[in-house]
Design a protein around this nucleic acid. Structure first.
Lengths: 192, 192
DNA sequence: CTCGCTTGTCTAGCGATGCTAGGATCGAAT
DNA sequence: ATTCGATCCTAGCATCGCTAGACAAGCGAG
């Protein structure tokens, strides 16, 4: 059986290569540049190989999104853990979120802008996505305020951050005042 | 010269037809279904005619966006005008914004999600876009709070609404609690 | 060690996309 | 009536996501 196991390992390895390459290409030149042909060429296999791993481009985007969700959760937890007091924690969370969106725009798009064929806010939502939301929830629960469901507050706060992130990156908002807008959001939304 | 004028009128008429048809098609089947071929077929002209009016698909999206911006401004002003007191006005504004996004998803996408080749938040920003922002600003200025620039507050509030709108429509947020999230946003962000 | 067969990969191609070149046609002006 | 310019369409290019079918490599059986 060792032969089959080796093949399986190699296959898994190649799948990781596909996802990593897709992500890299997307970060370098945007998701529009991630065509199945270019991707196949970069991993030095032919196009149909991609389809033996994923149903299509959509699933590749989904795979990048899941990877990104895990990283985002780690980044947010690290940021909040290093902060003292509820207010500092929320500020750190917001900054970490926006920094992630800015530093990894392609991953952020895979997560929240594009269709990766993933289920959100349901029972069958993939674990990394649930965990990323949980990371938000952990920090924001303590500032939701009385009579407000922590989940509801987290959703609202998250949506606000998402709006800032996307509008800024699309050039709809001047980037200079990002920090001030973030402060305003934290000051007003969080009950301290 | 009357002949030329007639031709010019007909040309303008056809241009409006293109924009209206593109918008209709986008609302019916999404922007992905708006291909230059389908669009050309619907207006009963050949493809290249589209390119004698617009540089490309992008500019058509832009034209729909401008139309939408004007309508959105009207809708928001109508909503705020019918409300008594600052709090009711802001609530009405938020509801009108989200309702517009929900009722005209394709137009909303053209405005804030897709690339219509338009300049935002600059001097050469088209008038309809400036006016839509102005409509937000008019209502939100009175609740920005002391020491907060009205523009900055408006941008932040707008971003929050945008986040709610997009995440809800993309299935990232359960739609049931939209109203409660809106209330939360108004209650916390606006200084009443 | 050889042979057949499964498994895996590649070449080639399909329909569709945005966009454009070049010829045909139609109408206005002389 | 004829010329000439504007207007429009046919046809085509490169590229897209995706797939069918041929081909080869490597396995287990005899």
């Amino acid at each position: 059986m060792s032969v089959q196991e080796r093949k399986q390992r190699e296959r898994a390895q190649r799948e990781r290569l596909i996802v990593a390459t897709a992500r890299e290409l997307a970060e370098q030149q945007g998701w529009d540049a991630v065509t199945t042909r270019r991707l196949a060429e970069r991993i030095e296999y032919s196009q149909p190989v991609l389809y033996s791993h994923f149903r299509g481009k959509r699933e590749i985007i989904g795979a990048v999104a899941l990877q990104g969700a895990s990283e985002m959760a780690v980044a947010m937890r690290a940021a909040t853990a290093a902060a003292d007091g509820p207010r500092a924690r929320v500020t750190a969370l917001a900054r970490a979120y926006l920094a992630f969106a800015e530093r990894h725009p392609a991953v952020y798009d895979a997560l929240f802008q594009l269709d990766g064929g993933l289920a959100y806010a349901q029972e069958d939502t993939p674990e990394p996505l649930k965990d990323a939301f949980a990371a938000l929830l952990e920090c924001l629960s303590e500032v939701a305020g009385d009579g407000v469901r922590p989940e509801l507050f987290t959703e609202t706060f998250w949506a606000s951050l998402h709006g800032l992130a996307t509008l800024t990156r699309a050039g709809r908002l001047p980037p200079e005042d990002t920090e001030r807008r973030t402060e305003l959001l934290v000051d007003r939304l969080a009950m301290l």
